[in-house]
Amino acid sequence: MEIDIMTIIVGGLLAIGLFFFLAGAIGIIRFPDFYSRLHPAGMIDSMGLLLSMSGLALFTLFDGGLCLASVLNSLKIALIVVFVYITSPTATHAIIDAGMRAGLKPWTKKRNPQSK
């Protein structure tokens, strides 16, 4: 089984993207309150999706020769990323606004002075 340069690039992009996904999942578990958990969730949406989608788009572009259908498929994958980049701030703001209106108090260091 030969290892060409495309395998390395696509595999590397996918691996870094999955690492960001993993970091987002762990951050959602570890962080202390609802407001701070939104920051790793934004990390999933911005970086992990961008890297893994660009890896998959590169694979789709060069898989089975460069023809019109694969170019169109890669453009569609790029459009998914553009769409998520437009809508992700709106969704995040909707969640944090719901928390504010429901009256959840943010976790601060002052109110939890020694958290060990």
């Binding site: 960001f20 970091a23 951050g27 570890r30 309150d33 920051h39 790793p40 970086m47 976790w107 260091k109």
Partner: peptide, 19 residues
Amino acid sequence: NIHVLKLVFHPDMINRINP
């Protein structure tokens, strides 16, 4: 992203963040 990534995997995370 790299900044938040360092925070997530830091063992002493709860004292380093300051929301």
